[in-house]
Design a protein around this nucleic acid. Structure first.
Lengths: 208, 208
DNA sequence: TAGATTGTTAATCGATTAACAATC
DNA sequence: TAGATTGTTAATCGATTAACAATC
């Protein structure tokens, strides 16, 4: 069952995919887990185990067919099966994400944004709706992914609204912990946590 | 020694800080690890252990002084000690980060951006320099943090330039694995990995 | 004093890595 | 056939959690 793929494995799969997709056109038709591991500075057994959970194109002595492996990873990661999403919060980050074309490649299509406004507004070809219309639009479009880019102080309320509107997975860019009912996934993109690592590294370095 | 604080702990510290900073003004002067753990849905021993690595204000039966704990966390996370950074890549994401005021609160000051252009350009009060001036500016300003928001295909080259320019920590938003010399930290903000979790959650849900 | 809470030592759990058998 | 490589079972490692002693 694919449900017992660990979070760690799931997060590494896109790395493998982007690496093998970036391989030059004249590269060999097959690639080994060892080569991928070396390029990404990972353990080769780990790569093999990760790939085993989504692929059956590995052959002893031969490795994996690059073409097949790309297809298997893309299919597993849902890159061919586009999910619609909406963004709540059309500040600079929200607008940047709305405007970013690259998500399509990952099977994510951001339909629209919501923010405080009295009328729907256009931004780079996408619509920013008044926040009041959140539930109506989500229900009508059957939206299952919500992206939160509002300030921390409003994030929980927005999150509750999203859940009430039928959203099942939330990508949270606000620096707060969100409480959700069981069965709803919150994926945090916490910049403060990343900065903590950067800042700690610099401090440690100075000590030496 | 603070160097043996784990990555996991380091990433949780900002969560504790933002939670206790958001406490209402009329809240009790002290807070227990158990309360923090409940609010953030974590294990209380974990919170206590994490806090023990940066704080000495915990008292049995009393808990932690909110005021002292905020001061200790802010100091440890370097929020009072601003680091200067530059961004390479002034596309929509790069501009959003350049424009985002919130990093100052975390001790990060983004001075300028670099991109392909023949002349320095102004954007929202900050300067976008021609990429050719990267090394000169980094050296002159003694920049130690570089933020990469260029397309995947250019990221390694930019990374090499940053390292050559004296940068010691890199915040990488490009979906590629970067290879760096020992001692340089790369912190990846990999959107594709996050999306893999969201997409997997939705798929699993459908199966049920 | 008794109870709540901290901080630490020990046990558990899960992920990573090593060892190895199977095979093209 | 021999060597490279996969996939799996076992060992190791590190992080989380449980148990408990110390104490305001």
């Amino acid at each position: 069952m694919s449900s017992n793929i660990s979070k760690q494995t799931l997060q590494r799969l896109p790395l493998y995919l982007s690496y093998i997709k970036a391989l030059p056109a004249d590269a060999p038709k097959n690639i080994s887990a060892t080569m991928i591991a070396e390029a990404l500075q990972l353990n080769d057994v780990q790569v093999r185990k990760d790939l085993a959970s989504v692929s059956s194109s590995g052959k002893p002595k031969v490795g994996y067919s690059v073409k097949d492996l790309i297809a298997e990873l893309e299919s597993f990661l849902g890159y061919d099966n586009v999910d619609d999403a909406i963004i709540v919060g059309a500040g600079s980050l929200g607008k940047a994400l709305l405007n970013y074309g690259g998500f399509k490649e990952y099977g994510l299509n951001i339909l629209a944004a919501f923010d405080l406004c009295s009328e729907p507004e256009e931004f780079q070809g996408k619509t920013v709706f008044p926040i009041e219309q959140l539930e109506t639009v989500c229900r009508r479009m059957n939206i299952r992914i919500g992206i939160i880019t509002v300030p921390a102080s409003n994030a929980q309320e927005i999150c509750d609204n999203l859940v009430k509107s039928g959203v099942r997975a939330i990508w949270n860019f606000a620096p707060v912990h969100l409480v959700v009912p069981e069965g709803i996934l919150v994926q945090n993109e916490n910049m403060a946590s990343s900065l903590a690592l950067l800042s700690n590294h610099l401090r440690e370095e100075l000590k030496r």
